[in-house]
Amino acid sequence: MTAVLKINHIAKTFNPGTITEKKALTDVHLHLEPGDFVTVIGGNGAGKSTMLNAVAGVFPVDHGTISIDGVDVTHLPEHKRAAYLGRVFQDPMTGTAATMNIEENMALAMRRGEKRGLRWGISAMEREMYREQLSKLGLGLENRMSSKVGLLSGGQRQALTLLMATMRTPKLLLLDEHTAALDPKTAAKVLELSEMIIAKQKLTAMMITHNMRDAIAMGNRLIMMHEGRIVVDVRGEHKASLTREDLMGLFEKAAGKELDGDKLLLS
């Protein structure tokens, strides 16, 4: 089977040659098989979000190549890579257009990767489909389809963004700490939804989290990043039986220092 995502030795330095120079990614190499659901952990500044953003094309990388589903996307701009990707962000404000209503936001997502012409922006048939999809979220959003998204709560917006990211089955789903800004109860609900959707559509996904328990409980593979590199990569049965203590041991061995677990969990 061909890998869905191939990150081949990418590196990225921000503001090179200045006092704010930051080596965000030193050498990241990662291949994802179809159906892989990878959780990504690591401390602040480890390069987790930078890696996801490099895949999404938010900025060009300095070295290395990235291919999605066999297509070399290294030099494709962000809006073109979007055709392959579904993305949910940490800030609930980022994933939706606040001044547009729910159905308009969904119609925008439905046309990801397609040419946008002078046809009407949303059809009656679509509207019915959106209503059905929204009802599955169980948040009552199906009755508020013409409400502005800005009126929704953070949790509702994240659930909607998740739906928008997966409505058209993406080759790869990128979740960038998408529950970090939510209260614990809402976060649990959104995580549950994410797991359900990923399982149902057999998606290949990467999820960044600060919560070690979630990282261990979810997905079939776990990677840990440190100083711009992947230092731990466990999968399969090994991943299934992983404990927090195992993880800390693995990290110490790889990074050569003790893992500050509290910081990781709390930050």
């Binding site: 939706t96 257009a97 547009m100 119609a107 997502a109 046309r111 946008r116």
Partner: peptide, 26 residues
Amino acid sequence: FFGTELGCSMRATGANRNMSRAQGIN
């Protein structure tokens, strides 16, 4: 015009540039 696919994508661009790019809008 602002109700068409193109017009909607222009409104989205004004509302949220990041979201627009993530949804494949130039």
